[in-house]
Nucleic acid binder design. Sequence first.
DNA 1: ATGCCCTATGATATAGGA
Length: 266
Amino acid sequence: MRIATWNVNSIGARLPRVLEWLEAAEPDVVALQELKCTSDDFPHLPIRALGYEAVAHGNGRWNGVALLSRVGLEDVTLDLSGQPEYEGVVETRAVGATCGGVRVWSVYVPNGREPDHDHYAYKLAWFDALRGTVASELAADPALPYAVIGDFNVAPTDADVWDIAQFANSTHVTPAERQALADLRAEGLADLMPRSLKGEPYTFWDYRNGAFHRGWGMRIDLIYANSPFVALAQDTWVDREARKGKGASDHAPLVVDLTDPVTVSP
DNA sequence: ATGCCCTATGATATAGGA
């Protein structure tokens, strides 16, 4: 089973690239983030034509997440348990589903903007709701392969940004954000590190200043998986090709291949 | 090489991204 996560930075603007990528990469389950559309405006038709059913959770101009699957899409959950509001709104940043015997969450963690901004406190509160949701789901079915995948908007270590000196007084690298990731790991999830291509683990490169061709990237799209999921994982990588050329998202897909769960024959 | 910001909006500037 092939599972991927991709912040597409608008499904409307990215649809040609997304369809092209689905046909070429043939993933079974895909988590999308930053749809920038409403649930009703999600392009179900062309995606269904490629064999995927989808659940989209979006409320307009910003945010929005989806799960695509060609191996079943069951027990769909919109939003986290106790998900905090921002400016009075529960934003569309999380959707979970069980696909082909694997429980997956597509998450788009708030950016945080600046360490002294309200959005940063919101980000940390959002992580706490994610931790709580994960804890209760893992306890309910410890043997179920389980992963939270998406844009976490945190670089787990200094090696996950091209130059840590550029991040003084910035979000994405602060001790509190990294502690939020550590708290998730403490609930039983592991950071499934992608195989390094060109010596870089990055999943995001800013559009500005030619960041991609200069190697100015960040690893902020992550796969946080429990032991049963990790035990099935064969290979994990970033599809840098999808970041190239005209009309690309500023994020690349992060992909993991799992062996299909073994069926015991008599 | 991959090539020097992009996207959506009651738009013609602004907010957000990270």
